[in-house]
Each structure stands twice: as C-alpha cells, then as structure tokens.
C-alpha cells in the first residue's frame, strides 16, 4: 500500500498580504529613520550655533586685549572649541555618509571652521604658538582619493601625536558645495583640484600619503606643489 503523491498548493493570498505588510513595515522603518536623522541634524545645528557664539566671544576677547597675558586663556578656550568643532565635523560626515545631508548646515559648519582657523592664526601670532594649521579641500562629487586623504590626515596626526610638541589642526572644506567661505579660501590659495592641502599657507596638490604628510607636518619636507599664496 503506497501513499498518493501530495498535490502541492500555493498560499497566494498569504504571499500578497505578507508583501503588503512588509512594504508597510519598511515604510515605517524609513519614516522613523528619517525622523531620527532630522532630529540629529537639528541637534548638530544647535551645536554649530552655540560653538559659533563661543568662537565669536573668544574673538571679541582677543580684539579687546592685545597683550599676551591672556594667551593661556585663549589657548585653553581655543582647544575646547576646536575639539568640539572637530567632533561636529565627524558627526556631519557620518550622517553625510549614510545619506542624511543638510547642505545649509554644512555651509554653516564651514563658517565655523573658517572662523576657528582665523582665530587660531591670530593666537599663533599673538601668543607665539607654533601650531600647524591645515586647510583641507575636498569634493564629495568628483574626487576618488578624497575619502582616503581625509583618513590619512587623521592617521598622520595620530602618528605624530607623541613625537612633536605642537598641535596639528585640520579645517576641511567641500570645495563643490557652493559655500562662500570655502570659495573664498580656495581663491586665496589658488585651489582648483581635489584633494588639496594647505599647510601653514603652503599648498600641496593631489593625494599625499601618510609618510609624506608626516614629513610635511614635522617640517621635514618644504616642497609644496603650488605657488606661495601670499604673493
């Protein structure tokens, strides 16, 4: 006695219902994810505004008192501001990498960076500080090596952190975002390709690997690839 072969069936209504429910749940996931990103961007926007205000206060202090007696105060406050600015930059980059971008917020961030850069320059001069100021110009649209360059800049700083006693500060700008501040800095330093690094006003075009960056930052290599920018 043998069993009959089982006729197979299709639960077509279940397939369709499962598909519809899946689409709905996916939609909810996308919506909640988008809300979450908006909330993060809003928080970062508040951070940018408050950091800008602190920066402006520090600038006013600098202009009010041109003696060197306040240098320790400037340096401490500037360190905090720069740390906070860099963290804001990492947050913005992370959100940007996963597709959550706010172009106006990024432009505002570049204003913050530019102000920080100018203040650092002034403090360097006023307080006889030898910090290395690095402008980094990149593009998210048209630059294959820019992502690697950004990481290598951080790596080179990590390598040098114990061997030199000056600080290396990065100020990065997306040159294709339409930011007035970024465009002004590009014009000043004759930046026309990406990635380009400007170290203490010396221009280095194209990708620089970690070893080259270490030499540049530690002052071992003086060969830049562009004209002096103050001429």
């Amino acid at each position: 006695m043998t069993s009959k072969n089982t006729p197979r069936s299709f639960s077509a209504p279940l397939y369709i219902l499962a598909f519809i429910i899946t689409i709905v749940i996916f939609g909810i996931g996308v919506y909640v994810g988008t809300l979450f990103d908006k909330s993060n961007l809003s928080r970062i926007s508040s951070d940018v505004e408050s950091t800008l205000q602190r920066l402006e206060s520090a600038q006013i202090l600098l202009f009010l008192d041109d003696s060197a007696s306040f240098c320790p105060v400037y340096k401490t406050e500037l360190e905090k501001l720069e740390r906070d600015t860099e963290l804001i930059g990492h947050r913005l980059n992370l959100l940007s990498d996963k597709g959550a971008t706010d172009i106006e917020l990024k432009k505002q961030y570049f204003v913050l960076e530019a102000q920080g850069y100018l203040l650092s320059k002034k403090v360097n001069e006023r307080c006889n500080v030898n910090d290395t100021l690095v402008l980094y110009f990149y593009s998210n649209k048209n630059c294959e090596k820019c992502a690697a360059q950004g990481e290598d800049l951080l790596r080179s700083r990590d390598q040098l952190s114990n061997s030199i006693d000056k600080r290396i500060k990065f100020y990065s700008f997306d040159g294709d975002l339409g930011s007035a501040v970024a465009d002004a800095l590009k014009q000043k330093h004759y930046v026309y390709e990406y990635p380009t690094i400007v170290v203490n006003d010396k221009v280095y075009r194209d990708y620089q690997d970690v070893d080259t960056l270490v030499k540049i930052f530690s002052g071992q290599s003086a060969i830049s690839s562009g004209p002096r920018t103050d001429g």
Partner: peptide, 27 residues
Amino acid sequence: TQPYYFRYLGLEASLLSLTPIHIVGLI
C-alpha cells in the same frame, strides 16, 4: 569604511549610524 567615526565619537557613532534598516531590524 567607518573606523574613525567610532574612534572619535565612541558610542555616539553607533547611534548616529542608525539607519532605517536598523529600525526594520528592531521590528
């Protein structure tokens, strides 16, 4: 692709990295 975020932002990087996929994953 994302080592530096976690180095500088710590746990915050995990929260910021949440995407709709993570929400779907929770569901």
